[in-house]
Design a binder for these strands. Structure first.
Lengths: 219, 219
DNA sequence: CCTACCGATCGGTAGG
DNA sequence: CCTACCGATCGGTAGG
């Protein structure tokens, strides 16, 4: 796990595939690609069957590997779950940043909340990503240290909702306290993963519209 | 599983512990009590550690039995989960009926929704029952037949919300369509199991108040 | 209900 | 990355 590198003046301990060093060689590029594929198929399986309902053999087979090979890329099954959640939160943050950027600085509270709700629903039920649903429903399986890491990403993601909610509260369109509203709203949106199927009676835009109507009485 | 009883004129097949026959003898009373205890401790463990995170040995130990003895009462681990959900829905329905009865017939939409929200939150986070949280988060682990049975109970429970939501929609206090509002509202309330801890900053009544404020702009 | 046990599966590892 | 394998755990059962 640790590699000892001898330089002219000192001994330096470098973590394999550590954060600070971008992949360089062709080998390393391939390795990180395969790793990413594993995370992706694991996310799909975890979403469909749950973490405990998916064996490491299932993941390996779905990625076209032998069962033991997974542990060349991850030190444990739990580490795969952690990676799924980290990648998912990173994706979600990127997507949310883009949605807010597209709005411009002069957007009002209704427009901002509308964009945030729409983006979050897209992630939850849009079928493009399995990461967030897994994160939400397998949360407790992480170790304390892992949970703290992902929590930090989640907190940053959710914090971006507060300006919009506070603005809406000030103008009287949101009657609940912004902090509590945030928690209840995320509940309502996250739960859609349980019942919403795209194209069955309700489109994503209509769902967004109904959610806005429920929370602030307009869209 | 089946017991053959010989009467004077015919052979009758009677299901052991079938629905139609209430327990009679002292043995049967004890047996159904022990069964109920098992369901209760299983609900606690399932809520804390999840279905897959709980072994049948854990359940047996918590009930003061040997590991094999559980299968005298239940034919499988899955059957215990099913029983947890059935008992939970039955409890929830009783509690909800009582809450609605207490209101009287002249209650308006706001009062009705308020009572329903308060009762549901009480079940979710009140600490008295572990059944509903288990039901909501381990839903997909049931077999199709089991899920259909519990679904019927759940549908009846949720149907009782519709008159209140429709009345509020008519008077313009609820802006979203009642059917979609119901789904989003249950999401918001069910999700509280993830973040709400009684007595930490927010009481159950305050939470009810905030939820009502969010959904219909008043309490 | 208990005792004693089985077969299957699972996460993970050594060595290449 | 693969092969070959291990120890632990698990749901469930036979027989009393």
């Amino acid at each position: 796990m640790l590699r000892l590198m001898q330089t002219s003046h000192e001994a330096v301990i470098v973590k394999k595939r550590g954060r600070g060093r971008p992949p360089k060689s062709a080998d390393e590029r391939n390795e990180s690609m395969r790793r990413g594929e594993l995370v992706k198929v694991a996310a799909q399986l975890f979403r469909q069957r749950g973490f405990h309902g998916t064996s490491t053999r299932d993941i390996a087979a779905a990625a076209g590997m032998q069962s033991g090979s997974i542990f060349y890329f991850f030190e444990s099954k739990e580490a795969i779950l952690h990676a799924v959640m980290q990648d998912g939160m990173t994706q979600a943050a990127v997507s949310q940043d883009a949605a807010l950027q597209a709005l411009g600085a002069r957007a009002n509270g209704v427009e901002r909340l509308s964009a945030l709700v729409r983006n979050h629903l897209q992630i939850m039920v849009g079928g493009e990503s399995d990461f967030i649903p897994v994160m939400l429903y397998e949360w407790r399986l992480l170790s304390d240290a892992q949970r703290m890491e992902v929590s930090a990403q989640k907190d940053a993601y959710e914090a971006q909702w507060m300006p919009a909610l506070q603005a809406l509260h000030r103008t009287g369109k949101l009657k609940a306290r912004p902090e509590i509203a945030r928690l209840l709203i995320f509940g309502a949106l996250n739960w859609t993963a349980q019942w919403f199927t795209e194209g069955r009676g309700l489109t994503l835009d209509e769902l967004t519209e109904q959610a806005l109507a429920l929370f602030i009485g307009e869209r």
